[in-house]
């Protein structure tokens, strides 16, 4: 992309930089970055019967001395109490399984849409996006009526004669898997589709001309070339699902442990803000690796584009 050299005078350009870069930077710095500093600070405070319910990290004692109290108990608790470790492992497991299912279902769908005749692609894609625009909460709620012991799925299966008595699906891990895959499938399909439509079809033709069978051509040409889409889609599903609250809360069993739900309970029911903050910090730390991976990939793709 070539910038016409004479377009921006140095003065207006500086102003435009200041506005375009400065204002969003300021907003996100204040309301997205700064909060994490405060979470970190409160995660090392102690809960207190006060308003707000935690001890102050520092206070001025006499003679102008600043006294700082750091309390690592919350992190010790998360490390030592099996509940928290189990919740983290379970969250990662659920996110992993659901990402895999989304990929196995989403890849063929994205591929089918990307290879459909051009005039059909937009409506097919619209149909993927449409559910994403309707309320997430209500779509999760729809599954309660379906998966209930006397819900629609059980009635249907009983009527078919596949089962003799209703299955307990609601309030199990299976229901969580179904709910997550259902809600996050579009996030997998969209980057995959974007990637697959950019694929050069002549590469496949060349492979076919050289006597490569379609399946082999897919495995050796299409699949490696769509790796960027696979990773992007997987991260868009994996990262938010690790901290998911609504789905395990509405569809999962009351005893099922996921970090997002635990954090919610510590905050709203137990009013332990420091422990909730410590959980948020650990969760954030867990997600840094997949996030950096995604970010790197995104920047590489942007550089290839321009």
């Amino acid at each position: 992309m070539s910038q016409p050299p004479h377009t921006h005078g140095p003065h207006t350009s500086r102003l435009s930089r200041l506005v375009n870069i400065g204002i969003p930077y300021l907003w996100l710095g204040l309301f997205f970055l700064l909060p994490f500093v405060i979470v970190l600070q409160i995660s090392v405070a102690e809960p207190a019967l006060a308003q707000p319910p935690y001890t102050q990290l520092w206070e001025w004692v006499e003679d102008g001395l600043l006294q700082i109290q750091i309390n690592l108990q919350n992190f010790m608790l998360i490390w030592e109490d099996e509940i928290y470790l189990a919740a983290f492992l379970n969250s990662l497991w659920v996110a992993f399984v659901c990402t895999l299912i989304c990929l196995l279902l989403g890849y063929p769908m994205a591929y089918a849409i990307a290879t459909a005749p051009e005039r059909r692609r937009t409506p097919l894609l619209m149909l993927i996006i449409l559910p994403f625009w309707t309320s997430f909460l209500i779509r999760v709620y729809a599954w309660i009526g379906i998966l209930n012991t006397n819900g629609l799925l059980n009635h249907f299966l009983l009527w078919l004669g596949v089962i003799d008595e209703p299955l307990q699906i609601l309030h199990t891990q299976t229901a969580v898997y179904i709910g997550v895959v259902y809600s996050y499938l579009p996030f997998m399909i969209l980057p995959l589709y974007a990637n697959l439509t950019r694929l050069d079809p002549t590469l496949l033709e060349a492979a076919a001309d050289l006597g490569c069978r379609p399946l082999r051509a897919f495995l050796r040409v299409t699949l490696p070339l769509s790796m960027a889409g696979i990773i992007a889609g997987s991260m868009l599903v994996f990262i938010p699902v690790v901290g998911e609250f609504v789905i395990p809360d509405l569809l999962g069993s009351p005893g099922s442990l996921m970090v997002g739900k635990l954090l919610w309970t510590e905050f709203f029911s137990n009013k332990d803000w420091p422990l909730a903050s410590a959980l948020a910090i650990v969760l954030l730390g867990t997600l840094v690796v997949p996030f950096v991976l995604m970010q790197r990939l995104q920047q590489n793709m942007d550089e290839n584009q321009t």
Partner: peptide, 26 residues
């Protein structure tokens, strides 16, 4: 800048919610 614009897309809601509340309280 890019990091600040990508992170909110995937950041779990519970983290955004909690951190903003703590900011507002502070």
């Amino acid at each position: 800048f890019e990091l600040l614009l990508t992170a909110p897309l995937v950041m779990p809601d519970v983290i955004i919610g909690l951190s903003l509340l703590l900011l507002f309280v502070a």
